[in-house]
Design a protein around this nucleic acid. Structure first.
Lengths: 144, 144
DNA sequence: TGCCGATAGATGCATTATACATATAGCAGC
DNA sequence: GCTGCTATATGTATAATGCATCTATCGGCA
């Protein structure tokens, strides 16, 4: 069937960090914990934060989804000139969710941190050893 | 201020942290940076890390995807009794990707941290002010 | 007045990702 | 043979995503 051998040097292109879903949602909630803001503004704030650019359509849709879930609320702000802005603010439920997420997140974080800290001790294999044996990669069955 | 539409207490149920995509991929890469491991084992390791349970089918598919991208490599381990195990190890490209991800991740992290740290100063609104004005939530247009 | 560009939000659509259930298979104990 | 645990994989319906596109307001400018 599929028998491609991944060269490896084009891997970053195919599989770059995307920061989707939960990461976007929680970033938005985090911003809204401090400041009321509207979508266009949040897109720019996220970019300014040094994160990879988010698709604005995804941001707008995510905000509406957060609103449907009751984590944020919004109203149309027509006080400024220009197109109306949908101003968002964090709800009580949103704050609760954000702290729940941060709990989960800190556990995830320690997984990453452990990976980086242990980098110095890389020599001593701890668990499933088997030194990086070559063998047939991408094999489809144990016994061809 | 009362949320008339979303009760808020069912928000966590509808919108719980899922730890998808990039988070799963990078967790797997992080584990594999230290230990060679197979899928079933990684599912258990992730659970032991205190993270919400991942669907095993998603983990297996994600591992194959990482392999297709050249970030990990695998071989069938039939040395133990029982079903064959597909042993994974991190490739050079995988290490590169992981550190790229950790860069992005640390920026994301500071977004969250800033949100939590500033919590004490919550009173002084900094940016888009407009005290949580009520107004029509979930409105479809600025002018009814 | 008409046109352009920036701002602001939204949606259509094809592709991909995901959860849930189910399938396959090896082996151990009875 | 049957059951249960290990270990991997897939079918499928639903959800999420990227990209392009659309609407609309307003300021500047010719």
């Amino acid at each position: 069937m599929e028998e491609q051998s991944a060269p490896g040097n084009e891997a970053e292109a195919k599989f770059r960090p995307r920061l989707h879903g939960d990461l976007l949602s929680s970033s938005l909630l985090a911003f809204l914990r401090n400041w009321n803001a509207y979508g266009y503004q949040l897109v720019q704030e996220l970019a300014k934060a040094g994160l990879p650019a988010f698709d604005s359509g995804t941001v707008y849709r995510t905000l509406r989804q957060l609103e449907r879930a009751g984590l944020v609320s919004s109203f149309w702000d027509t006080s400024e000139s220009g197109p109306a802005r949908r101003m968002y603010s964090l709800t009580k439920a949103g704050e609760t969710f954000l702290s729940l997420w941060i709990d989960v997140f800190s556990r995830y974080q320690s997984v990453l941190r452990r990976a980086m800290e242990r980098y110095g001790d890389r020599d001593q294999e701890v668990a499933g050893a088997e030194p990086p044996a070559p063998a047939e990669p991408l094999a489809d069955a144990p016994e061809g």
